[in-house]
């Protein structure tokens, strides 16, 4: 028989996964304007990969884990800025392939999911405490 504290594990795994997602969004936004002269070395947007945590034998309630952070392989944005000191021989600079609007949406989604998990944990905690004080 599994304990009611399994809910804490599940909600906790979701909170850490969402916080990784928030960190990557923060990193992407921070580097959104870091232009460079070489299209290969310019910053690429990072994406966390989520997966249900492996199911332990007999337990069918998986948490979530981050299997890795991958780079978005889309081509960087090419801008003609001959006055920029980072410009290459033809006057172009390369901006990271970070879509700021996409990142903001991702941030809101991650924040909401995090809040959901906090609520789940709060409810589970209240019920566990009530169960402990049963009959008093």
């Amino acid at each position: 028989m599994s304990s009611s504290f399994r809910i804490f594990d599940i909600a906790g795994s979701a909170m850490s996964a969402q916080s990784v997602r928030l960190s990557t969004v923060a990193s992407n936004l921070a580097n959104a304007d870091a232009v460079g002269s070489d299209p290969n070395s310019v910053f690429k947007a990072h994406l966390p990969m989520f997966k249900s945590a492996p199911e332990i034998a007999g337990q069918q309630t998986p948490g979530v884990r981050v299997t890795g952070v991958v780079e978005n392989q889309a081509a960087p944005e090419k801008r003609f800025e001959p006055g920029n000191p980072m410009a290459d021989g033809e006057g172009y600079v390369y901006a990271p392939n970070v879509n700021v609007v996409e990142q903001m949406v991702d941030m809101i989604s991650a924040s909401r999911s995090y809040q959901n998990s906090v609520e789940v944990m709060n409810t589970a905690k209240e019920l566990a405490l009530k169960t402990l004080s049963l009959g008093s």
């Binding site: 599940i10 997966k51 991650a110 999911s113």
Partner: peptide, 17 residues
Amino acid sequence: RQRMEVLAANIANADTP
């Protein structure tokens, strides 16, 4: 309690493909 566990797992995996 088991049902709450299953639902918590659903909410935790809301963004899992």
